[in-house]
Design a protein around this nucleic acid. Structure first.
Length: 417
RNA sequence: GGCCCCAUCGUCUAGAGGCCUAGGACAUCAGAUUCUCAAUCUGGGUACACGGGUUCGAAUCCCGUUGGGGCCGCCA
């Protein structure tokens, strides 16, 4: 069977991190099976459908590398198809008009679903449904509703596997009944569990807590300097596991191993700290050259110098946005310095002025020799030196830092204090 | 209220009846690296929600309880 899956977001103006995971699992399944990944924009709710909202979705998916093979299709352009399908049901006596709306005659029997992830699920009618199981498929204003267009599109687009959030599990009987009304077998369903905040609440961009609100949409991660491959890798591990002890794995391997029955059935809580750790892992694996292409906000026209600075700092950094702040002193003399022993640093400057070659090894040897002569611990020279040249108490290995900074800057800063 | 799903360290997970006095990762704590730490290394603590079964034997199977999540719209 030729697998066809789809990601069908609604253009709401942001991409929810849970939707991103759903898109990822669809994409993984398509790539794993050699199938087709369809993108469909569910823009039937005209009230919140904007050009910008579409851009957010397209840019977000592109950022993550989740490229679609077909589409995007727009529900707003498919009204004729829906009208025809409504007519089909009405003509067949399976839908009827009431109070201006068109309602579907829902079966009264419990519906059995064989979900690829949740397993066999039998849904009885709820207390309200028992009295009136039928549901509206076309509003009195003439617009078809989500459940209807969703099914019609999946049918028309020959979707074979519907991989979506578990919040749709309870809706699935309606969808199955509609497929049967159209005389076709419903697709296979795979409902993936939800992603919740660490405290178990729903992730929402309108959460009163700004920290939690920011975690809910993809935009924040892009702005904060997360690498797409790190976000993608982290998301793969929410509800799925390679079943060995590795956390960082190439996407090619995930594609090869990923399958629906192995997806966990329980909800996952989002661990921002682990994501950040993972991002640091990915940053550390990039070269200075690669980092220079991705990091913005680093001044200076000297490309080679920028690359060396990024290379030097990368192991200390977990977010790209940290680079400009932490590398500031490489590009400017304008930073505050706490008081240090000027006489002592003057001697170090004199020593460094005649160091044979300006490299970490020579600088280390020079500093240690001076410390011995003066009868002080190396730390008594190292810490003031770091402060004088960087204004910081923490940073990369001092000697490597001095090497990258270069002779002129270092001597000037040591003597300036 | 009804219906549905779920339940292993704080978090993500491994575990598909004996390999488990439960493994890995993040986080955390303690050491180390006699140059810091925001890096790295080493080590520690921390979990099978509870109660019944089934079985020689259960984290693994069944039932119940509790807890968490979801759906019950002319929203998607």
């Amino acid at each position: 069977m030729n697998v066809r899956v789809r990601f069908a977001p609604s253009p709401t103006g942001f991409l929810h991190i849970g939707s991103v995971r759903t898109a990822l699992f669809n994409w993984l399944y398509a790539r794993h099976t050699g199938g087709t990944f369809v993108l469909r924009i569910e823009d039937t709710d005209t009230a919140r459908n904007t050009e910008q909202s579409l851009r957010t979705i397209l840019d977000g998916l592109a950022w993550l590398g989740l490229t679609h093979d077909e589409g995007p299709y727009f529900q707003s352009q498919r009204a004729a198809i829906y009208r025809q399908r409504v007519k089909q049901l009405v003509d067949a006596g399976m839908a009827y008009e009431r109070e201006g709306a068109i309602r579907f005659k829902m079966t009264r029997e419990p519906i059995v679903m064989n979900d690829l992830i949740a397993g066999k699920v039998t849904r009885e009618l709820g207390d309200r449904e028992v009295n009136d199981p039928d549901f509206v498929i076309v509003r009195s204003d003439g617009n078809p509703v989500f459940h209807f267009v969703n099914v019609v599109d999946d049918l028309e687009m020959k979707i074979t596997h519907v991989i979506r959030g578990e919040d749709h599990l309870s809706n699935t009987p309606k969808h199955i009944a509609l497929f049967r009304a159209f005389g076709v077998e419903p697709p296979k369903y795979a409902h993936i569990p939800m992603i919740l905040n660490k405290d178990g609440t729903k992730m929402s961009k309108s959460d009163p807590d700004p920290v939690k609100a920011r975690l809910a949409s993809l935009t924040g991660y892009i702005e904060d300097g997360y690498l797409p491959e790190a976000v993608r890798n982290y998301l793969c591990l929410l509800g799925w596991s390679p079943k060995d002890d590795r956390q960082v794995l190439p996407i090619e391997e995930v594609i090869q191993k990923f399958d629906l029955p192995q997806v966990l059935r329980s909800n996952a809580k989002f661990d921002a700290a682990k994501l950040e750790w993972m991002n640091g892992q990915y940053i550390n694996r990039l070269t200075g050259e690669e980092l220079d292409r991705r990091v913005t906000g680093i001044p200076g026209a000297d490309v080679a110098y920028r690359r060396r600075v990024l290379e030097l700092l990368k192991s200390k950094v977990t977010l790209l946005k940290q680079f400009p702040e932490r590398t500031k002193y490489f590009f400017t003399d304008d930073f505050p310095v706490e008081p240090v022993d000027a006489a002592l640093l003057g001697k170090l400057a004199d020593r460094y002025a005649c160091v044979p070659t300006w490299d970490a090894a020579s600088l280390e040897a020079g500093l240690k020799a001076l410390a011995t002569e003066l009868g002080v611990k190396t730390g008594q020279l190292i810490h003031p030196c770091r402060m004088a040249v960087s204004g910081q108490t923490v940073g990369p290995s001092l000697y490597h830092m001095l090497e990258v900074l270069g002779r002129d800057r270092v001597l000037a800063r040591l003597r300036k204090t």
